[in-house]
């Protein structure tokens, strides 16, 4: 193998690896759960209402004790918040950027804690699904690998 050919192969491999790394970073999907909730035993209490605007579109208005979610790709997300601290106060707009950990699929952000300047460990946590999975019921889904349904035919007989 001549040097030119070797150089070309190595270059191609490097380019492919670089594309893969880029895809892993920019394509990593996350779901951001945004809470407008008080945190127990702390001074961080829910706001009257928070408007969520993502990519120029209003997602929802979070009333006190409510949660909403945004799905996005990449390692950071920028959202515009319309904050109304109390019923009498006016709406204050703020654009915030959250950098999210790569290994977390779902991230919970407590907005009152974040806006009041709490530490990341206080306002950010991993989302854990509350759906109960019955590990003992393994027959929940049986893989169908028999195209000709021979098993079914045997049962019928």
């Amino acid at each position: 193998m001549n040097k030119r050919r070797l150089f070309f192969i190595a270059g191609t491999l490097l380019a492919v690896v670089a594309i893969c790394v880029l895809c892993f970073i920019i394509g990593r999907g996350h779901t951001l759960y945004l809470d407008n909730k008080s945190i127990e035993n702390t001074s961080y209490s829910s706001y009257n209402a928070i408007d969520l605007v993502y990519k120029g579109e209003k997602v929802t208005t979070l009333a006190a004790r409510e949660r909403s979610s945004i799905s996005f790709t990449g390692q950071s997300v920028t959202i515009t918040l319309g904050i109304k601290k109390s019923k009498s106060s006016s709406v204050e707009e703020k654009t915030v950027t959250f950098k999210v950990p790569y290994n977390m699929d779902g991230i919970v952000i407590n907005l009152p804690a974040y806006l009041d300047g709490a530490d990341e460990s206080v306002y950010m946590s991993e989302f854990v699904s509350m759906a109960i999975v019955d590990e003992t019921n393994v027959d929940d889904e049986v893989p169908v690998t028999d195209e000709f349904a021979i098993e079914g035919a045997e049962e019928e007989q």
Binding site: V16, I19, C20, L22, C23, F24, I26, G27, R28, G29, H30, S71, T73, D105
Partner: peptide, 15 residues
């Protein structure tokens, strides 16, 4: 399973 979404997922799957 790696939770790669969108066009990067398609490129990565092809690779």
């Amino acid at each position: 399973d790696w939770q790669i979404w969108g066009i990067p997922a398609i490129v990565l799957a092809c690779i």
